[in-house]
Design a protein around this nucleic acid. Sequence first.
DNA 1: GTAGATTTTTTGAGTAGTCAAAACTTCGGG
DNA 2: CCCGAAGTTTTGACTACTCAAAAAATCTAC
Lengths: 234, 234
Amino acid sequence: MFERSPAERPMPTSTIEDYLKAIYAEQLARPGERVTTGRIAEALSVTPGTATSMMKTLANAGLVSYEPYGGVTLTGAGEALAMRVLRRHRIVELFLVEVLGMDWSEVHPEAERLEHVVSEKMLERMDALLGRPTFDPHGDPIPTARGDVATTDHPSLLTCEPGRHRVARVLDQSADFLRRLDRCGVVPGEVATVGARDDDGPVVVETTSGRHAFDRAAAAQILVEPVQDPATRS
Amino acid sequence: MFERSPAERPMPTSTIEDYLKAIYAEQLARPGERVTTGRIAEALSVTPGTATSMMKTLANAGLVSYEPYGGVTLTGAGEALAMRVLRRHRIVELFLVEVLGMDWSEVHPEAERLEHVVSEKMLERMDALLGRPTFDPHGDPIPTARGDVATTDHPSLLTCEPGRHRVARVLDQSADFLRRLDRCGVVPGEVATVGARDDDGPVVVETTSGRHAFDRAAAAQILVEPVQDPATRS
DNA sequence: GTAGATTTTTTGAGTAGTCAAAACTTCGGG
DNA sequence: CCCGAAGTTTTGACTACTCAAAAAATCTAC
Ligand SMILES: [Mn+2]
Ligand SMILES: [Mn+2]
Ligand SMILES: [Mn+2]
Ligand SMILES: [Mn+2]
């Protein structure tokens, strides 16, 4: 009868944190659209009924606005919480790579668990040790402590001009794909030279490790930033 | 009817890991005795009924032997699991102090959560970075990966000979007590000179930070190791 | 614009963990 | 030997999360 009383703000469970992250990711992927329970269920590998009941829980907690048969959107509080979790996730990932020397292909599952238990204090220490980083190992932007995220707008290997580019971000973060990119030297920060493309063939890029071909689906997952290179410019 | 089938070994929950640690600690504190459900309830801040029902769960999983009204003891499997959690806990604590610069008085609650989510891989990296340590920030021994723990047998400030001693271990790990010891310079590795004691007065020790008095209860919590100091020996 | 497919919600049930309070053992005096 | 105190177990209930399958709503295509 009287849900959502003002004072009682029980600590969000890790399940709730993961749902909010998933909703945020879906919202980013299709801006403007409401996120359906089906997509959420898919993203979290639960049955549709489970997602529906969780949406009611989130709505009651004031974290999403939920319209039966009409999907959800994050409220301000929901987005703020999603940002805090995303910040923890990405700082942890970078920490695992930079400080513990783990591989960028294996840090995601670890961060998926750590993001729920790392204290504010510990996060601050990691952030400081890393030098207040702004991007994680996959090139994803790290939200600030106040919850702001940089929105970048990079072309992909499929849409960029031919020429020299710096790898900025990798969207497909499956371990296999990341390991393959590692072998190719196609990792954020590295420079790759994109060859001339035809309309439906693979994209060929050259890195320090040689020449590599990516099919169009793979190429679309790799975002780049043109390099202003005086040496190559006329 | 057929509980404890051989193949099904569901991953232990963090709750189970905490119960096993608590049982292990009680078992260490009173060797030989069976651990009562009451003590376990006390240690984990749950009601006695909750502890009882968890003991049945643990017994079914083959982790303790449970006798109604007769307490529990860890089985081999239970002790092995307790050791693995304790190893994670203590390596995490040392990591937080040594690498992230956190205070020894604040790392316990953090480790209490992290111990359940740190992967084998991440633990190995931390262990390597720390140089395969054998003691945590409180002087507690770190079990080996194979599950062996060093059993030390140090006198306390209350039972040691007067003279120079190296602080080896602190048993009371409440944040307040640890902060106080920090201010006194009474931390594992530091040397303290213990003055002559009378039968029921406080214990007076001298460290680089000056002269400090500990009441007998506090003194019993601080374990030390005599220093073989050529300069002071005749 | 209605039939059939698709999606979403509801219902009923189960696991893990917990508490409050009643019921039951055990054990230490007297 | 028995009685009461102390400790332990049982019972009934609750929260959080989940699934399977039935029911309902919505969408799509003729
Ligand atoms: Mn997660
Ligand atoms: Mn990432
Ligand atoms: Mn714990
Ligand atoms: Mn410790």
